[in-house]
Amino acid sequence: MRNEIAFYLVAAFTVAFAIAAMTLRDLVHCALCAAGAFAGLAMLYLQLDAEFVGFAQLLVYVGAIAVLILFAVLLTRGDEVRPGRAAPARSWWMGAGAAALVLAAIAAPILLSPSLEGGAPGAASAPVRRIGEELMTRYVLPLELVGVLLTGALLGAVVIAMREEPRTEDKAGGIPPRFTPTPGNPANPR
């Protein structure tokens, strides 16, 4: 019973933060609310006895991804919808409508499926030692691949986000301009 109450509380917390993250106007608030939703999901994992996954979720999502999003928000400032102007409503309502359809499509089978009924959880646990052993034996190839992928992503992110070096001939002209619109690709006027 206590677990059940805890579940509903955490679920409400998570959903509230997720909705806030998707609807608030200020991007910083959105990012912080997303961090809250991620933390709520971590709590749900902990409730489901997946201790290691819960802490990994907290470490990666709240500690890294949320901060990354905040940095991106700050580095692309001056771009938010100005407070006075209402956000264009059409695409928003289309998105919400499509999402409602998807929800109905997913929820109906879940609620109607007889095989999902009842199913009390057995005594499951994922001790860290087991996870480590599995990672080093059965899942060693995926683990290596993820390592390669993360290294690639790290390098890729640095290369993409790095400011392009001004060419040597540009350097003669003193301080390089903040960004140079190429001919055929004019920058949007603010």
Binding site: A42, E51, F55, V62, G63
Partner: peptide
Amino acid sequence: DAGILFFFAIGSASELAVFMAGW
């Protein structure tokens, strides 16, 4: 079982707090 992971996971919340304060 994953005590040290818990420790570091908890520590990561402080970055968000510092950001909140500064922003």
